[in-house]
Design a protein around this nucleic acid. Structure first.
Lengths: 251, 251
DNA sequence: CTCTTTGATATACACTTGTTTAACTGAGGA
DNA sequence: TCCTCAGTTAAACAAGTGTATATCAAAGAG
C-alpha cells in the first residue's frame, strides 16, 4: 500500500518549502547539457537495456531533473535519436582516426584500420550492445534509418580510400567497381567479427581476431601473404615486383 | 479525460454479465498455445520494437487474454526468452537445411549455404531486426547469452563441416585449426553482409550479394576462381589437379 | 546594486505497464 | 447425465511511464 507516499503527496510543496531546500544547480551551455544528457542516455541503455532506460533514470544519471528532456529535446524519442547519431559518429570517427593517425605505407594504414576495429576500445561489448539495440529500431524509425545509412556510407568510403592504394601498390586491378565490392565484403567481415568477437561467447579467444582479419583481408584482396600482417617485410618484395602475385598457404 | 472508462469501471462485472457475453474460447494443447504466444511475441517485437511489444499487444495478437502469459510462461521476460530461442533455432535450422538439401559436390553445398544466407527468406529485414533487438539483450541476461552462444556454436560447426571437404578437394591444408579459422572468418563475412544487406540502406542492390559472397569465399579459402560461383566448371579442372593453386583476378 | 531572462526544478497528470486474483466455462471421465 | 478440473477470461492492482506546467533561482545586463 502506498499510504506513506500519499500522505506526503497531499501537501508536497508546503513540506518541501518548509523543511527541504530546492536542489542547487548550475546553468550550463546548450552543448554541454545536451552532450551530458546524450551520454547519460547511452550509459543507461547500455546498462539497463532499451526498456529499462526511462527518462527518470537517464536524467538521474545526468544529474538533472526530468523537465530538462523536454527543454533540450522535444521528447525522449528525440533524445534517443540524438544519442544514436552521437554513437555512430564516435564509432566512424574513431575508426577513421586510427587509420589517419598511422604513418607509413597504404598497407600499414589499412592493417591499422582493420586491427583497430577488432581491439579495444572499438571492439567493446558495451558498444556492440548499444549498436545492436539501435539497429533493431532502424526498421521502425526513418530517422534511425538515415543515421544508419550515413554511418554505413562513411565507413564504406573510408574503406575504399584505404583499399585502392594497396591494390595499386601490388599491381592488382583497382577499378572503382572493384574497390567498392572489396569494401562491401571487407566491411561485412569487419562488422561480423566485431560483433561476434565483442559478444565473446567464449568459443575462442578474442585476441586471435586482429591477426585473423589481416590474414583474411590479404586473401580477400589477393595480396601476397604478409602484405598486411607483416607489412614491413612483405612490402619490399612487393615494391620490387619480384613476386607480385605470389600466394602462400597457411602453415 | 477517462470519465467514460471510469463510469464503466464502477460496475464492470454487473455490466458485463447483463449486457455482454464472455469471450468464447478454445482449450488448446500446451504446445500449440505456447507456440502461438511465441510467434505473436516475435510478430509484435518485429512490428513495434521491443519497447512497443507489451503483454497486452502480444496477447491480442495471439487472440487470447493477458492472463495466459502467466499460465504458460512465468513472466513476460520468460516468454521473450523463449521467443529468442525459437528464432535462433529457426535460423540455424533453415541455414543447415539449405546446405543439407543440396545434392552434389562439397563446393555446391557450401555455395548453396552461402547463397541461402544472403537471399530470402533467410536475409529478411524483419528477421535481422528481431535478431539485432535480441542481441542487444545478450549482455544483460545470462539466458540470452547462452542462447546466443549455442546458436553461434552450431553455425560455426555447420560451416566447418562444409568447408573441410572443399579444402580437401582442392588439395589445400585442412587441419582442424585451419578449418576453424576459416569458419570464424566466413561466419563473420556472412553475418556482416546478412545484416547490412537486409537493412538495405540503398547504397547498393541486394541482389549482388550472393555472387559477392561466393567470390569472396573463394578468395578467403584460396580456391581457384569459379570454384564456388561456377562449381560445375571449376570442379573438373580442380579434380584433375591441373592447377590446384591457380589464382585468378577479377576482370 | 537591481532587474530580467531563462535554465532548471518540482510537481501533477493521464496513461500504460507487468502481474495477480477471482470467476467462469469448455471438455473429458464416471 | 452430471461432475470435476484445468484452461481461459476479466477485472483489479500497484508501480512506473512520458509529458506538461507552474515555480524558482542563477547569472548576465543595465
Amino acid at each position: 500500500m502506498p499510504a506513506l507516499d500519499c500522505t506526503l503527496e497531499t501537501q508536497p510543496k508546503l513540506f518541501n518549502c518548509i523543511t527541504m531546500s530546492r536542489k542547487t544547480f548550475q546553468r550550463l551551455s546548450l552543448d554541454v547539457r545536451r552532450r551530458s544528457l546524450i551520454e547519460a542516455t547511452l550509459t543507461c541503455i547500455a546498462r539497463d537495456g532499451l526498456h529499462g532506460a526511462s527518462v527518470r533514470r537517464i536524467t538521474e544519471e545526468a544529474g538533472v531533473t526530468v523537465g530538462l528532456v523536454r527543454h533540450y529535446f522535444g521528447s525522449k524519442d528525440d533524445m534517443i535519436r540524438n544519442a544514436y547519431a552521437y554513437l555512430v559518429g564516435q564509432l566512424t570517427a574513431q575508426a577513421s582516426e586510427s587509420a589517419r593517425a598511422t604513418e607509413g605505407t597504404p598497407e600499414a594504414k589499412l592493417a591499422s584500420f582493420l586491427r583497430a576495429n577488432l581491439t579495444k576500445p572499438n571492439m567493446d561489448e558495451k558498444t556492440v550492445s548499444l549498436w545492436a539495440t539501435f539497429i533493431g529500431r532502424v526498421r521502425h524509425d526513418p530517422d534511425f534509418a538515415e543515421i544508419h545509412r550515413d554511418g554505413y556510407r562513411e565507413f564504406l568510403n573510408v574503406l575504399e580510400t584505404l583499399i585502392e592504394p594497396v591494390l595499386i601498390d601490388h599491381g592488382c586491378p583497382h577499378s572503382v567497381a572493384i574497390c567498392r565490392n572489396h569494401a562491401i565484403a571487407l566491411n561485412g567481415l569487419i562488422d561480423g567479427l566485431w560483433m561476434e568477437g565483442a559478444l565473446n561467447s567464449g568459443l575462442y579467444a578474442q585476441d586471435i581476431l586482429p591477426d585473423l582479419i589481416t590474414g583474411a583481408a590479404e586473401r580477400l584482396l589477393e595480396l601476397p601473404a604478409g602484405a598486411l600482417s607483416a607489412p614491413d617485410i612483405a612490402l619490399q618484395s612487393a615494391r620490387h615486383q619480384t613476386q607480385p602475385k605470389q600466394q602462400s598457404k597457411p602453415s
